[in-house]
Design a protein around this nucleic acid. Sequence first.
DNA 1: GCTTTGATACCACAGTTTGCGGGATTGATG
DNA 2: CATCAATCCCGCAAACTGTGGTATCAAAGC
Lengths: 214, 214
Amino acid sequence: MENKYSKLNPLRIVITEDDAVIRDGFKSLLSQEESFMVTGTYRTAEECLADLDNSRPDVVIMDIELPGIDGIEGISRVKKQSDNIQMLVVTVYENDDLVFKALCAGAGGYLTKNMPSHRLVDAVKELVTGGAPMSTNIARMVVASFQRNLNSPLSARETEVLNLLATGKSYSVIASELYVDKETVKSHIKNIYSKLEVHSKAEALDKAKKEKWI
Amino acid sequence: MENKYSKLNPLRIVITEDDAVIRDGFKSLLSQEESFMVTGTYRTAEECLADLDNSRPDVVIMDIELPGIDGIEGISRVKKQSDNIQMLVVTVYENDDLVFKALCAGAGGYLTKNMPSHRLVDAVKELVTGGAPMSTNIARMVVASFQRNLNSPLSARETEVLNLLATGKSYSVIASELYVDKETVKSHIKNIYSKLEVHSKAEALDKAKKEKWI
DNA sequence: GCTTTGATACCACAGTTTGCGGGATTGATG
DNA sequence: CATCAATCCCGCAAACTGTGGTATCAAAGC
């Protein structure tokens, strides 16, 4: 990125943050970089959105808790307007649900506010060079979300069947994909239901997903 | 971690890597840290697994491409033996599929071999302090995996219905959860099928997942 | 050695679901 | 004023689902 952006052609950054102290802090921090230019600072997502044509940012730094529409929705709307704007969340929240919602909405990075201040500058650079800057605890949450629970009561085969069930396939289709009889699949599913103490596909998938068994 | 591990009570690391040059390079690199101790180096996952009781690692550094059982399976087996060993993948592969398989199998971090050498030491420290060290491109892939495709042909409501369908629920259950009539759900699904040009639940879910519309 | 578990397969049955063929109405959004 | 989204309605044949049994064989555990 060092060669793409310069003092004459700076990386355009906007900040959306309701706390004036933090907002100004971020602005002065980022402005110290020669190749950065803060082209807008806003108190709400609405103001930020309304001024996009003017601020024309490469990167939007956004808080999650905001008056009016929240940061998550703010990310969605900015992304919908122009998908190539990179969104960086900077917030005090490190609750699972918010992190994943923000990432699903289109955040390219997620920092918590207890970072050392120079981290913000690094994160912006990382973001525009194709990285995904995250605080350590956030990165861990994200990676953990991929991991299965090792104490599943289901056998390997049963897990396989349940996974196929999760794709919406019928017993007969599952059977042919596993090269076994449909009746075998039915047996597996009966056993799955009894192990999970459920009585339907939906309940089984629900429970297995919650427990990270599939 | 600085206060948890020391010269007398070092962090125990093992390396599983088939290339002798890299293996030795990693070993000497890590051994320079006072609080680290390399308690085993292996050419294959089998050797690593067989020696776990002796090497008793806190961290296992593992390559993906290995003779015999591969790194992915290796991660699974180590994790099955003792879930609190942290697994760090270091490999040349940065193919989507392998990255996600490794993370699902239990990798806590994933580095590509083109990193600066000091990064390895930092990554190990990050891993044992609850982080998830990743190369920038890997972090991006991981974050991107959460993001939906913004150009979905489906309306918001249709997407909602399809998501519920993905949980294995029947039309009637979906209807009651959305507080609409079952016939409405059927209509939505008919429209979804026609937009996606499919003729069944399984096909619709398959296509929508592939295109990241749900 | 004996028991348990996992994977395989079969039968029958009632009830539900699914996909598709037709519609229709209302309210936005352009 | 046309189109799309969301809502609702009917009917039907075919397929699917959940549950009740039963059974064999191999592997793993005690």
